[in-house]
Amino acid sequence: MPIHEESLIRPENLRKHEELNIDNVDVSGHWSTFIETRSVADYNENLEREISAFPGGAYIHRCWQCGACTNSCTVNAINPDFNPRYWIYLARLGMEQELLRDKEIIWQCVSCHRCTHVCPRDVEPEGVMKALSHWLEAKGHTPKSQSQHFDEEFYQQILETGKIEEGRIVRNFFNRTGQPLKQPWLIRMVKNLIRGLPIMLMFKMGLSTLFRPKTKDWSKSKHSIEELIEMRELERKKILEGNEAS
């Protein structure tokens, strides 16, 4: 069979024969390229359920594969491998190994909500992208993404005080991810910033670093949030373990 769109097929799935004779018909040359026969046996039948247990993934089952998400996607426009429609398809089919091919880029969703805006089935694909990247981390397929480190730092500060302080977020995030604070572009930015700032404002910003902004009487809220998160984590653990036992 001639394969006209070879670029659509992965090289490892193409087989070319120098000389080939089928039923006494010489098919060498143009007619000698075949798509490798495959059969998938390693389905994870629980995959969709696992992913829907992570924050944002609840509506993955609604998808009917129209492709509006990928078509509108901000990240897809700069990296064609970033393909939400395809990942939702794989997750729903249970094709875990195929999904893992893109595990390094799924976390890069920028949450612009274009997909959720256009989705005719209210899948909230943006949430599914977050659920997918959390699932990848929970299953040990990828280390924590930069984005996850950022989210955790953010969440932690809100949990402690009800508010965030941006300077602390930046410092702790760079610390967590082992990045140097002294990068040329950051230094220039801070210089530009300080250039214009009045002394009183700098003083106030310094104070907010020392005395963190806080919401008063926050402890009950903190406790109630922690309780909810613990419950959710238990539910997720059950779903993930249930799968591994079967």
């Binding site: 924050p55 996850q148 809100i158 998160i229």
Partner: peptide, 12 residues
């Protein structure tokens, strides 16, 4: 209190 910005929804 903070609204959770774009981050907390990813936690829950």
């Amino acid at each position: 209190n903070c609204c959770g910005a774009m981050e907390v929804k990813n936690i829950d």
